[in-house]
Amino acid sequence: MAPGVGWGASWSVALAAALALGGPGCTRRAAREPALHHIVIDRFRYQPAVLVVASGDTVEWMNQDLVPHTASASSRSWDSQSIAPGASWRTVVHRRAVETYGCLFHPNMKARLVVR
């Protein structure tokens, strides 16, 4: 780095970075960028059985089992319908709650999705 140029260049980079983030007041928004979470359905179980996500995140269920399953919220706020073996289904969750869900086809399958 050439003398005399370094300070200005560094400042410019810092300023550009701050602008890219939308300024100091918006750095928290950047940290809340919606995330994608995966839940695997295998051997008649949801894995993980409990998942904590943030409101606005996307949750995807991937059916790696031998038979069709569903991921259906007890509150009926979302329902995948039948997910064929090898297929997946995703939804964006907004409602902050501890949601119990399960498979409509197999009553012994239960899990929880915690939306904060």
């Binding site: 051997r43 031998l66 038979v67 009553p107 012994n108 399958m109």
Partner: peptide
């Protein structure tokens, strides 16, 4: 081995 959970779930049901 992977078929077993299906039979267990059916039995429970």
């Amino acid at each position: 081995d992977s078929v077993k959970p299906a039979f267990e779930a059916h039995l429970d049901h």
